[in-house]
Design a protein around this nucleic acid. Sequence first.
RNA 1: GGGCUAUUAGCUCAGUUGGUUAGAGCGCUUCCUUGACAUGGAAGAGGUCAGUGGUUCGAAUCCACUAUAGCCCACCA
Length: 931
Amino acid sequence: MWKNRSDSGEGKGRYRFDLWYNTGIIKFADSLLKKKDMDKHYDAKAAEAKWYPFWEKNGCFHDEPGEGTPYSVVIPPPNVTGILHMGHALNQTIQDILVRWRRMQGRNTLWLPGTDHAGIATQNVVEKTLKKEGKRRQDLGREAFLERVWQWKEQYGGTIVHQQRMLGNSTDWARERFTFDEGCSKAVVKVFKRLFDEGLVYKGNYIVNWCPRCGTALANDEVEHEPNHGHFWYVRYPVVGSGKGVAGEPYADYVMVATTRPETLPGDTAVAVNPKDERYAHLVGKNVILPLTGREIPVVADDYVDREFGTGIVKITPAHDPNDFLVGKRHGLEEINIMNGDGTMNELAGEKYVGMDRFKCREAIVADLEAGGYLDHIEDLDNQVGHCYRCHEVVESRLSKQWFVKMKPLAEPAIAAVKSGEVKFVPERWSKIYFNWMENIQDWCISRQLWWGHRIPAYYLRTADGGIDEESVFVAESAEEALEMAKAKTGNAALAAADLVQDEDVLDTWFSSWLWPFSTLGWPEKTKDLEYYYPTADLVTAQDIIFFWVARMMMAGIHFMGRPPFRNIVIHGIVRAADGSKMSKSKGNSLDPLELIDMYSADALRFSIALITSLDCDTKVNKEKFEIGRNFTTKIWNAARFLEMNTPAEGFGEIAGELTADEKHILMATDKACRRMSEILENYRIQDGALAVYDFFWRQICDWYVEYAKDAPDRNRAFAILRDVFYKALRLLHPYMPFVTEEVAHQLGYLKDGETIMRQEYPAGYSEAEKAAWGLSDEVYDFVERKREAITALRALRAEYKVPPATFVKVTIATGDERASGEVESLKKAMRAETVEFASADSDLAMPSKLTAFGTVYLSLEGLVDKAAESKRIAGELAKLAGFIRSSEAKLANKAFVDHAPAAIVEEARRKLEENRAKVAQLEKLAKLFA
RNA sequence: GGGCUAUUAGCUCAGUUGGUUAGAGCGCUUCCUUGACAUGGAAGAGGUCAGUGGUUCGAAUCCACUAUAGCCCACCA
C-alpha cells in the first residue's frame, strides 16, 4: 500500500523527512521524548489475530443467565455448506453492532451462533463428490451415505463458522448449535409428534412440485419461476360420434386444445371449457377421443378455464398439473400418473414412450401428433417455468403421498401477534407483506425424499408380503415407543422391532429451522437458558426469508412456547453488485468479504457496510466503497498516535481551571454524540449511527479540536480533555469497529492487560454535575460553531484573493459578540493572522469581507485585488441575495405564515432576513470600492 | 392479474411526525507536505428533489394521476 505513493510521484516531502529520520538525529531526539511508540502504521491483521482469540478465550462473548432484562439474538443459521458472502457480512455486522452496543450498556447478552444442516444443499454437495468416484448414493446405501455426509460436515462444515470469526462477530461460540445436532433433532421429533397428535400434521395424496434431478418434493417457495420461450401446440381432439377420428384425415368435428406440454397428453382424463362459454356449451357432457391413445375422455365445464386464453379449451391432466388436479377433484376424474420420479415416462404413457425422458417424449409425441394429422399449428409462447432452487432442473408437478402441516390454525395467532404490536417489523412496512402471505397461507409440504435430514418419526407395520401397511401409522419419539404403540393398537404383544418400518422420507430443512429460537436454548428441556433468554429481542434478517423462515418461526414460537420468539423483526436489504444486479458467483460480479477483510481490514468492511446500508432499500456496493472504512481506520490510528506522542509519562491529571470556549465545545460535542448514538441505535438506525460517529470523530475531534489542542493556552488541560473525549469516542465506535478500538484503547493505556473495551460502559454523555462544573452549555457550543464559521469565511476570502497560506494577514471582525475578545489567540492561529482586531457590529470597514453568524470578517489586503473579477463576483452574489430577500420578505409579510408557523421558525426567518440585508449593504459598499 | 418499493449533485445514497438558502461520501477544479494523518488538510464548482395536478401560510416530505426502474406473490393450460 505505502509503496504506491512513490509510484504516483507524490510524497517528496516524506522522502526528505525519511532521509532525515534515518540519519538518526531525530530518532535520538524522539527516544528522549517518547516512552512507548505506537507503530507508524496500523497493522489490522495483527490486531485481528490478537484480539479475536483473546475475546473468545476469555469468555467475552459469553454470559450466563442472570438478572435483569437480557438482550438475546439468534443468528440466522447459514447453511453448513455455505461460505461467507456479502449478505452474511451485512446481516451479521448489523447484529454485532446491536449486540456489542447492548453488551456495553451492561445488558446480559446472548448472540447465539450456529449452522443449518441444509438438507438438499448438503446432500447435493456430497453426492457430487461421490460422483467423482463414479458412485451414486444408492451404491452406498442409506447408513453409509449418511456416514459420508457427517464426515464431510466434520471436515468442511466449519468453514463458515471460521469465516464468521474473521468478521469479528461476538457470537457466543460456547452455545453454538447445529439444526441436526442431538438437541435440535429431539425438538424436531417432539414437534412432529405433537402436531400429528393435534391433527395438524397429515399425510395426503397431493400434487407436489417435484425435482426429477434431486428426486424429491419441493415446497412452493423452493420453486423459482423463470421466463421461458416456449411453444403452444394446437392439437385437435375429435369429438366422439362425429363419425370421424381416423388418423390422417382432417376432422370435421373436433375440439382445438392448446397446450404447452404435449408430453403429458397420455395422462389426460378430460378436456375442460368455461361454463359461460357459449361457443362450446354444446360440447359439455360429450366425449372426445384422446389422440394417439384412442381413449375417450369427457368434456367438462369448469370456472378455472379462461375463455380468452388459447382456444378456451384446456386438456386436463390431473396427475401432472396443480390446477388440473383440482379440476379433476371437482369432477371426479381419474388421475393417471405417466411419469417416473426421475422424469422418464412410465408404462401408463404408452408402450412407445416408456423410458423416454420427458423432453424427448415431448418431441416424439409432437411428431406423432403431426403424423396423425392431429397437430393443427404451433405458436410461440412466452411463459414461466418452475425450476428447482437448488439444482435448477425444470420442476415437474407430480402426484405423490406427502406429509403436510395444516398452516391456517398456526398462522392466525401469528398474524394477531403482529397486528397487536406485540411483535414489530422494522421497517414497519414489511408487516404488510407478512400479512399478505399469512392470510393466504397454504399447507406446508414437509416431506422430502432425501436421506440427509431428520427422518420422519412415523412407523408402519410390515405386511405379510414384506411391503408396508400405510394405514397403520404410528408417530412416536422413538422406535421403541412406536413398537409399544403398535402392540397396544394391534393387541399383538409378539410384535418385534423388525415388524415396524420407519418412513423413508426426511423433513424439510425449515422444519428444524422454524424451531431455532427455542430448540437452541434447550427446548423441550426446561433449561435456565430457555427460561432466561426466550423470547429473543431482535431478529435481523434479509427480506428473502420472511416467508421461509421468519413467519414460520413466529408460528412455532407461539404454538410451542406460548409466546412469539422475538419482539422486533429487523429487515435489511440485499447487497447488490454495482450495476444493481444480484451478486452471484456465476456472473462473476460478487465481492468476497474475506478478500475485502484481507485488503482493507474487518473494521473497514464493517464500518463501510454499515455506512452505506440503509434498512429501507437494497445496497449497491463496489470495492471502492470499502476505502471509506479503511481511511477512517487510518484516521483513528493517526489521531491516537498524535495523542500518544503528546502524552507525558506522568499523564495529564484532572481537568481543572476555567475551560476555554473550544474546550467546552468539544465536551459538549462529545455529550451530544453520546446521547445521539444511543437514540439512533434504539431505533436501529445503523447507518445514521455510522455517519454520526464518523462526523464526530473526524470533523469535531480531528479537524477541529486536535488543531486547537496543538496550540492551546493550557496544553496540559487541553490534552487532558482530549484524552477523556478520545476514550468516549473509542467506545462509541467500538460496536462498529471492534478491533482498532480495542487496540488503540490498549495502546493509549485506557485499559490494562487482560481488560477489554468490549465490556466497558457505552458512554451516555456527561452528567449534569460535570456539565455545571465545566460550564458547559448549548450557548457556548453554538458560539464556537459560529466562530468556526468565521474562520471558514476568512479561509474562503484567502482563497478568493489568492493569499497564500504562508502569508500572515490582518483581520478585523465586526461582531457584537462580547465573548469574541477572549478568542483572539485561537483566531489568530486558525486564521494565520498577524493581527485580529474587533470592531463594532455595525462598522463599515470596506475591505473584502464575509458576513457570518459570528459577525463580519474583514480581510485587509492592502490593495492586492483583481477589481474587475471581484466586481463581477459581487454582482452575482447580490443577485442571489436579492432573490432570497424578496422571498423572505414575502414570507414574513404573509400573516398566515407568522400566525401558523412555530415561533422559532418565524424568528429564524427574521434573523436570516436581517442578516442577508446586512450582507447586501456590505456588498454594495464593496461593489463601489471595486468599481 | 394482486401487492410493495424506488426516482434528490457526474456516481452511490442521507434527508426522523411538512418549517433555515436541500446534505454526505466518492469523483471533479484550485491551493497546501519538516513532525498525528496525502489512506491527509483548506477552499470551490455542481441539484427546477422524475413529471403534472391537488391539500397547506408553507411540500423533496402528504394526496391523486402519469412516466420510468426494480422486487415479491399468484397465474399463464
